[in-house]
Design a binder for these strands. Structure first.
Length: 508
DNA sequence: CCATCGTTGACGAC
DNA sequence: GTCGTCAACGATGG
């Protein structure tokens, strides 16, 4: 097929899985005979990996894969209502897309701009090919309220590093005064697909998750009884829809503004719902403007801290065997639901890193990235930087207690009993610290600590004290070296910290 | 240089 | 429930 002279458009869906407020789709549908709406399934992301620590693919847990498939099915349905459909293809995305562009009659390629490094690299390849082939490319920013590049430019080339300065800099969204285009009445027909293999949106079974899926359906439990606020989500739970762009953050923003206009008393940023959208944009902006944002090394906004590499502690945390019921219950909710309350996430992230275990935040980030339905590259990394006091937030003396924090919200421990049924008969005075229960109580509750449920992996009092000390040392080293801490400097500090702790042991 | 402030810590005194 | 204390950080803005 002659390139560049074609009469069709290709709409490439990645995030932005929606038909409302979708400028790329709108442009793709304009003055064209044919429209090819494409989604490419990357096997690395979707196909079963038997070696992974939880059911799912190499990169994503089953809960998120399921959510993505449901979103795709919904998108397909909406496209069909408009006289089109979703063309699902499988393979390495850039290869598959280039093949489509070569084989099909395409003169215009449209896709939503994406600030993540993965897509930045992918999109360069695709744009390079398109420019050689004479294919017009339209790639608008529509995933966030603001264009991160604009905000960075306004700040002289560096992203703002505090929420407040971000908000001041960002101002009002450029589209705030005019209504967004949220309806499409019809779409052009799909053109000839030639030899490219097209499939329907697969079911989770078709991807090879048949057995697990049966288990999931059989085990599905709707929250019931007298749930604490952690069981019955006290938040909107819209995060996964925003992550995949099933819901436009801009449209959501406009809807919220409408509500605020009609309601006298309402909350305000940063704690209001609009505030949450602004936080999302803040993290997208910093992430886009910070090289190596997802690593400690080579990340200019990240404190260099001598985290340990203790796999046993990491696995105990990951697999909900820390011996702290509150921490373990949250981690079980993560495995089962792929979602936890925001503050529950804080609590377990602090525990793994600067609070108790002193394990590298990148390790915890990996676990969340895999298991959360709503895991979003910029926001997940931003929050791990935050909670580990590596960036944005630096008050490392403020440590969440694995005992008191949950108790404050749920004194009876209903949340723990729900996710850790082994503790369901433990009296409430011991439910957050079952190792302190007298043996007779443990026997009566049919839960012997150390046998039926683990003892604490570390004692919180001394472990958190030790962590504070390490953080103070690391901070002072960062200050002394003006942030330029080398691998070697960290090694030395690790040695020093070990020696110091040996001394303390000998003294006591 | 300095003052202010930061979405969400724990604990104890009142 | 609201305060101060703990110990004291860094980004920002003057």
């Amino acid at each position: 097929m002659a390139s560049g002279s074609g009469s069709g458009s290709l709409m490439w869906f990645r995030k932005g899985l929606r038909i409302h407020d979708n400028p790329a789709l709108e442009r793709a549908a304009q003055s064209t005979k044919f429209l090819y709406p494409v989604f490419i399934i990357d096997p690395h992301y979707m196909e079963p990996d038997p070696n992974a620590f939880s059911p799912g693919s190499k990169r994503a847990g089953l809960n998120r894969i399921r959510f993505l498939l449901q979103s795709l099915a919904d998108l397909d349905l909406n496209l069909r209502k408009l006289g089109s459909r979703l063309l699902v293809l499988k393979g390495e995305p850039s290869q598959v897309l280039l093949r489509c562009l070569k084989e099909w009659d395409v003169k215009k390629l449209c896709f939503e701009y994406d600030t993540e490094p993965y897509y930045q690299a992918l999109d360069i390849k695709v744009k390079d090919y398109a420019s050689i082939a004479g294919i017009e490319v339209y790639s608008p920013v529509s995933h966030t309220l603001f264009n991160p590049a604009d905000v960075i430019q306004k700040n002289g080339g560096r992203p703002p590093l505090s929420y407040q300065s971000f908000v001041k800099l960002a101002g009002q969204p450029s589209w705030a005064s005019s209504p967004l285009s949220v309806t499409i009445s019809s779409l052009p027909p799909v053109g000839d697909v030639g030899g490219c293999e097209i499939s329907e949106v697969p079911t989770i079974k078709e991807l090879g998750y048949g057995d697990i899926e049966q288990e999931w359906v059989a085990a599905f439990e709707k929250p019931k009884g007298d749930p604490s606020s952690f069981l019955k989500p006290a938040t909107t739970t819209l995060s996964p829809y925003l992550k995949f762009g099933c819901l436009s953050s801009r449209y959501f923003y406009q809807c919220l503004q409408d509500v605020y206009r009609n309601v006298k008393r309402h909350t305000s940023p940063p704690v209001s719902l609009v505030g949450q959208l602004l936080w999302r944009d803040f993290f997208y902006t910093v992430a886009f403007g910070t090289p190596n944002f997802d690593r400690m090394t080579g990340n200019r906004i990240c404190k260099q801290i001598p985290w340990n590499d203790n796999n046993e502690l990491l696995v105990a945390w990951r697999d909900a065997r820390t011996g702290y019921p509150w921490i373990d219950a949250v981690m079980i909710q993560l495995h089962k639901w792929g979602w936890m309350h925001h503050l529950a996430r804080h609590s377990v992230a602090c525990f793994l890193t600067r609070g108790d275990l002193f394990v590298h935040w990148e390790k915890g980030r990996d676990v969340f990235e895999r298991l959360l339905i709503d895991s979003d590259w910029a926001i997940n990394n931003g929050n791990w930087l935050w909670l580990s006091c590596s960036s944005f937030f630096y008050q490392y003396n403020r440590i969440y207690s694995p005992i008191s924090f949950g108790k404050k919200y749920d004194p009876n421990g209903d949340y723990i009993k729900h996710f850790l049924p082994i503790l369901k008969d433990m009296p409430k005075e011991y439910i957050y610290e079952p190792w302190t229960a007298p043996l007779s109580v443990q026997m009566k509750a049919k839960c012997i600590i150390g046998k039926d449920y683990p003892k604490p992996v570390v004692p919180h009092d001394s472990a958190s004290k030790e962590s504070r000390r390490k953080m103070a040392e690391a901070y002072s080293l960062n200050q002394k070296l003006n942030g330029k801490v080398s691998e070697e400097d960290l090694k030395k500090l690790r040695r020093k910290l070990e020696e110091d702790s040996e001394d303390t042991k000998q003294e006591s």
